[in-house]
């Protein structure tokens, strides 16, 4: 005899089986996507990685799932997977990466083909380890790659990089020196201001404007932090006749703003 209770039990069983089947299917799809990722190259169907995209988004507020995904992604990063595959991994880690990903991402920094994608993830990751890895990496890389790492440290306003960045103002590569000036301007601390102040007179001709711009940015940071007197000193320096007109005007407006701040 089929009772009401039997019906409920059957329905529950069916739903449970459905859920289990659905989870199994999702797991299979994810495994398949990670398998495809190992050899993924540009030109292959991006949809084959769709299960990873979905899993990363779905891992919100599910720390265990996030950790599992992160570990699988890092494994691909450590493998000899193609550039496109590692590019994909860095994009995913830029969203869910934690301190656990940092060593594998930091290892990409010296690689001309993957350095940017390493920073693509590290720059977005809020953990201190990500910034520390870029700070450490800055001293180990050269040329354009170094410019990129300096730029990322500027974005993160890493005050702990100040001393190293001050040293790089003297670099013979104008791209590196210009990046260091910009990063110091973004950091915007009194120490950065002091270094940029000294740099104004020393900067080579092609970097004069970049140096002034960084100094203005620094003044804005100081002003925002309530350090009006420090900001005023910068604006007074940049309002002098040796600066281009638009810089002098920017400095004059800055002086007005600083004078208005109590």
């Amino acid at each position: 005899m089929f009772t009401r209770m039997n019906g409920i039990v059957c329905l529950t069983m069916a739903l449970l089986l459905g859920c289990v089947a659905s989870i199994a299917t999702a797991d299979e799809a994810l495994d398949k996507a990670f398998e495809a990722l190992k050899t993924y190259k540009w030109g292959q169907d991006r949809a084959t990685l769709g299960a990873i995209d979905a899993a990363v988004v779905a891992s919100h507020k599910d720390d265990a799932a996030k950790k599992d995904l992160e570990a699988k992604l890092v494994a691909v990063l450590k493998s000899d997977a193609p550039q496109a595959a590692k590019d994909f991994v860095c994009r995913k880690l830029s969203l869910i990466g934690s301190a656990a990903s940092v060593p594998a991402l930091a290892a990409l920094l010296p690689d001309e083909k993957l350095s940017h994608m390493g920073r693509y993830a590290l720059e977005r990751m809020p953990c201190d380890e990500a910034v520390a890895a870029m700070r450490d990496g800055m001293g180990k890389v050269k040329g354009l790659v170094k410019v990129g790492v300096i730029n990322s440290l500027g974005v993160r306003r890493d005050a702990a990089s100040t001393a190293a960045l001050v040293g790089l103002l003297e670099d013979s590569d104008p791209q590196i020196a210009g990046a260091a000036a910009a990063a110091l301007g973004a950091i915007g601390s009194p120490d950065a201001a002091k270094a940029l102040g000294a740099y104004q007179a020393k900067a080579p001709k092609e970097l004069k404007l970049a140096a002034a711009d960084a100094y203005l940015a620094c003044a804005e940071r100081l002003l925002a932090d309530g350090k009006a007197n420090e900001a005023k000193m910068i604006y007074m320096t940049l309002a002098k006749p040796d600066q281009p007109k638009h810089v002098r005007l920017a400095a004059t407006r800055g002086l007005l703003a600083a004078a208005g701040q109590k």
């Binding site: 869910i96 940017h116 301007g185 973004a186």
Partner: peptide, 19 residues
């Protein structure tokens, strides 16, 4: 919302930056 906040920016390929 840490994840959403991460998407407010993107890292630029070297040598490009905003300043």
């Amino acid at each position: 919302d840490e994840e959403a906040n991460r998407l407010r920016r993107r890292s630029m390929r070297e040598p490009w930056r905003l300043c």
